[in-house]
């Protein structure tokens, strides 16, 4: 909301727009408007979650296998990073309500810092996917010839997933990583998982993974690819929302810097806060649903 209004006879206060009688009416309208915007955001992401729900319930093992390629350490770290940024965002509102300019500025800067950290970690993860051939589009992955040494973007960390840890270990040289055309690839571990869970497969899995009675790696790969497609769309859209959020924060920073907000006028801070928290909430669900869903299959 802009901080000025057209000159008008009802001009009582800075920040009051001409169509309203008083600040209370304006604040009410703006906050209902923001909440309705969030409702539409929820339905927007809701479509994605429906897609997730349908495919996950059709192909649970493929999803578990795909999920085990994700790095729960980075995912978990990012969850924490976002939670901290949510705290600093909440504190921004708190200080804006008290008209404390300096603390507002500090909190906004911190929020932006954590937001940027989140995006940085996402970039690391995406690079890792690129290096390991798990970007679902053929040709969009790193192309490695026979004999070339694969690079591992991620270091081996305590929570590193079993799959990528196995690959990263020195012994992994037995299965040299070759991907000449940068296609989407799955590993033997994934196929092992189907064998391990053979007795609990659903009807659609039995049709979806097998040709007749034999496990068909190509068909199974297609289902894991669907997991990664959903992963990239969901996290990508979430990251886009983060970027928009950072834009909002930059604007807020400038406003706070010029001392715009006070106990009487802090709606822009509060509204941006709602948006930021919403983006955090989406991640709260994405983390377990994408990163952790197959974890308990690893024995």
């Amino acid at each position: 909301m802009a901080s000025h209004a057209d000159t008008h006879e009802h001009y009582h206060q800075p920040g009051l727009q001409h169509q309203f009688e008083d600040m209370k009416q304006q604040e009410e309208s703006v906050s209902i408007g923001m909440w309705l915007f969030l409702v539409q955001e929820i339905m927007f992401f809701g479509g994605l979650f429906t897609v997730y729900l349908v495919f996950r319930s059709k192909f649970p093992i493929a999803f578990a296998a795909g999920s085990n390629h994700l790095d729960a350490f980075w995912g978990g770290l990012n969850t924490l990073v976002l939670i901290v940024s949510s705290l600093t965002m909440a504190l921004t509102v708190y200080y804006a309500q008290r008209g404390n300019r300096n603390m507002q500025v500090i909190m906004i800067v911190l929020t932006m810092l954590f937001g940027a950290t989140f995006l940085g970690v996402k970039a690391i993860e995406y690079t890792d996917k690129y290096n390991h051939g798990t970007i679902p589009v053929d040709g969009w992955n790193k192309k490695t010839k026979k004999g070339e040494k694969p690079e591992h973007a991620s270091i081996v960390l305590p929570f590193e997933t079993k799959v990528s840890a196995a690959e990263a270990k020195p012994g992994a040289e037995e299965h040299p990583y070759v991907n000449e055309r940068g296609v989407f690839q799955i590993t033997e571990h994934d196929l092992e998982l189907v064998a391990q869970e053979k007795d609990t497969l659903t009807e659609s899995e039995r049709i979806g993974y097998y040709s007749g009675d034999v496990l068909d790696p190509a068909k199974f790969r297609d289902k894991i690819r669907i997991f990664f497609w959903i992963y990239f769309v969901m996290t990508g859209l979430h990251a886009l929302h983060m970027i928009i959020g950072l834009g909002l924060m930059a604007w807020l920073l400038w406003k706070a810097w010029t001392n715009t907000f006070s106990a009487d006028y802090y709606m822009p801070v509060e509204m941006s806060g709602l948006y930021w928290h919403f983006v955090d909430i989406v991640w709260i669900f994405l983390f377990p649903l994408l990163y952790l869903l197959g974890r308990h299959f690893l024995h």
Partner: peptide, 20 residues
């Protein structure tokens, strides 16, 4: 919003030639 995301998914699938 649901039609918006649906069209978006359709578009991504058209570009990437893989999808759901």
């Amino acid at each position: 919003p649901v039609i918006a995301i649906t069209i978006l998914l359709l578009a991504i699938e058209r570009v990437a030639r893989v999808g759901i």
